[in-house]
């Protein structure tokens, strides 16, 4: 059974169609990259999946159960999780307090959170206010926090935005290892080098629609995909 299925999901903002009849299926343990020009509707799709936005039509099925109208916090308790594009941590609280708040008491102990804390070296900063961490570390802290519900599927919106090349490489390794622990991971990314490094299926979104799907090599060889990217750049 698929972990997540989107059926004809549509969301409009006034005249703009941010998600246009999107059909997408994610298998358990899948690693998936979502790419596309600015304004293609990538973040909107994440917000629809997690429940921050409600679709005008279509269905969201999670592990065989329809969750289209389920409140966001309940989706999180069911095993969905999302990292924001800009880091959203509790900057005035310590790293430890951030993690304590994020750690769900109800979640069964698959241990993803503790593994991630160890892996990203955040335990060393336990007593520091989260806002004093470096930019990359703040991203990592949020990545750990979204594992607090021991999720089945995590959505990562541009996890490497503003990171140094070393941190980006480290993050790619981390996400691959996380995926190796059995989690389905979906990543929105602009950096094609990063997409290549983590591998997995690539979906191209354009004007709210699914434009292409395949491996990165297939996508990069596609002249129409090149066209939408180049077209975007040249205005």
């Amino acid at each position: 059974m698929a972990v997540l299925e989107l059926h004809e999901l549509t969301r409009r903002f006034g005249g703009i169609v941010a998600a246009d009849n999107v059909d997408l299926t994610l298998e358990p343990g899948e690693l998936h990259c979502l790419i596309g020009p600015n304004g293609a509707g990538k973040s909107t799709l994440f917000k629809l999946i997690i429940g921050l936005l409600k679709p005008q039509s279509g269905q969201i099925i999670y592990q065989g159960r329809e969750i289209t109208r389920v409140q966001p916090y309940k989706r999180v308790r069911l095993g969905l999780s999302m990292k924001y594009q800009t880091t959203r941590i509790f900057a005035h609280l310590t790293v430890g307090q951030n993690i304590t708040i994020a750690r769900s008491r109800a979640a069964s102990g698959r241990g993803h959170l503790d593994w991630a804390l160890q892996r990203l070296g955040l335990r060393e900063h336990w007593e520091l206010p989260a806002g004093t961490l470096s930019y990359g570390e703040q991203h990592w802290l949020e990545m750990c926090m979204v594992l607090g519900n021991e999720p089945v599927l995590v959505l990562m919106d541009e996890p490497t935005a503003g990171m140094t090349p070393e941190e980006t490489h480290e993050t790619a390794q981390f996400l691959r290892e996380l995926n190796g622990r059995g989690l389905a991971v979906v990543v929105i990314e602009h950096d094609m080098g990063f997409v290549r490094e983590i591998g997995g299926t690539v979906t191209v979104l354009h004007h709210g629609r699914i434009f292409r799907q395949g491996t990165l090599d297939e996508i990069e060889a596609d002249t129409e995909v090149q066209h939408i990217y180049l077209g975007e750049r040249h205005g």
Binding site: I50, L52, Q71, Y73, S81, R88, I89, H92, I101, M145
Partner: peptide
């Protein structure tokens, strides 16, 4: 208490707190 920490979290960022599984 833990309850109090969640309240601080809600004051700082209610949406983030909800996405950590709390019914704000």
């Amino acid at each position: 208490s833990h309850f109090g920490h969640v309240l601080v979290a809600i004051r700082e960022d209610p949406e983030r707190t909800e996405l950590l599984g709390y019914d704000v």
